[in-house]
Design a protein around this nucleic acid. Structure first.
Lengths: 211, 211
DNA sequence: GTCTATAAACGGATAGAC
DNA sequence: GTCTATCCGTTTATAGAC
């Protein structure tokens, strides 16, 4: 089975060392495929080459494991997407950068962890609040960009909130269908996605549609 | 908690009568909220006003229940979206009809069952093959439409397969964020979605962007 | 048809040997 | 660090009374 996730940087499991981050990485991969509830500690242990009991040397519990994976995913999002985009003053360039970097992250398998972000109901109320706030911040970052484009008269006559959701929907869906060993290269998908997103949201043709 | 699903026609539970379809409907609602693995037979029984044991009078097992819900969801998709769209010879009108009816289905909560279509790993291999084939047929119906638009020179210079996935992503995501009791009316979201989809996929501005 | 009771398996998690 | 053994709650599913 294909690896959905390829974490280049190990998850820093609270400073517990290499083996620990290995367990986190394995867990993230399996949970992305089978969902949180569908993944047993046994599944994780087996894939990590340990027994169910052995795994508790590295983690405190299943829910906490999920929370740490989600936290890592959000950190990754901030570093790879938000931070570089924030440097760009022009909202159109910023939007383009967001679409490009988020799409690329998912195509490369890095950050495919974002699907784990759908497992909100499995979190404790406290943890859920933390992740919810971080997701909200990212959402608002994109919406803010679209609102700037709106006041510049560049956005289509669409609601910025609706636009943000539609954009995130089409991007996040990538982790559900894209296979790195399939027919479509990451480069062509990336190009098409930017094309579709920019033209779907902004007025006038802004991408020189050449192939 | 909000009802994600509103089944107007009861699920035809293999000709077992009214009460049976009630159980199926309840089960579909809960599974849409908590996922297949996160839903216990007890949850379903309680919501249906029965005991866990009592429910087995109507169903053969949990997996079979899921399979029947999925089958109903696909039937619904065929009747509400594919059948009407197939009448349209012009691919642009057909695309518009597909986007409109699929988006509307999700906004209304009818057919929100489509999220259950994500529970593929929970199915037995045989059942999974059946649903997979039906999903594939729907996907191909949309891609075929985009290919016709491509040969008419109306599609952007994008891969029709990638375009289909991006369209489905933004549409299916609706069931994750849209709340009927929220600020956005179904009508405005629908209008925006058609606008974004058509302009994202087709060359030139085709929607008179007025508000 | 719907219940109580219960079987059988599986889940997360811990104790304690090595 | 990693194992075996085990606890205990929960799960799906069935048997059998009413």
């Amino acid at each position: 089975m294909q690896r959905l996730i390829k974490l280049k940087e190990p998850i820093p499991a609270s400073g517990k060392g290499k083996r620990a981050s290995h367990v986190y990485r394995i867990a993230a991969e399996i949970m992305c495929q089978k969902g949180y509830e569908g993944t047993s500690m046994n599944d994780i242990a087996e894939a990590a080459g340990l027994t169910k009991a052995g795994i508790y040397h590295y983690i405190r519990g299943k829910e906490e494991l999920l929370f740490e994976i989600m936290t890592y995913a959000m950190d990754n999002l901030d570093q790879r997407i938000v931070a570089p985009a924030q440097e760009l003053a022009d909202p159109e360039k910023r939007l383009r950068a967001i679409v490009e970097s988020h799409t690329r992250s998912l195509l490369e398998g890095v950050g495919a962890i974002t699907i784990v972000l759908e497992e909100m109901p499995a979190l404790t109320p406290t943890h859920r609040r933390v992740i919810k706030a971080r997701k909200r911040t990212y959402f608002d970052f994109i919406r803010q960009t679209l609102q700037e484009l709106e006041s510049e008269g560049k956005l289509r006559d669409i609601n910025p909130t609706t636009a943000t959701f539609s954009l995130l929907g089409m991007i996040l869906w990538i982790s559900r269908w894209y296979r790195r060993d399939g027919k479509l290269s990451a480069e062509e998908v990336l190009k098409d996605y930017v094309d579709i997103a920019i033209n779907g949201l902004l007025k006038m043709d802004r991408v020189s549609s050449k192939r």
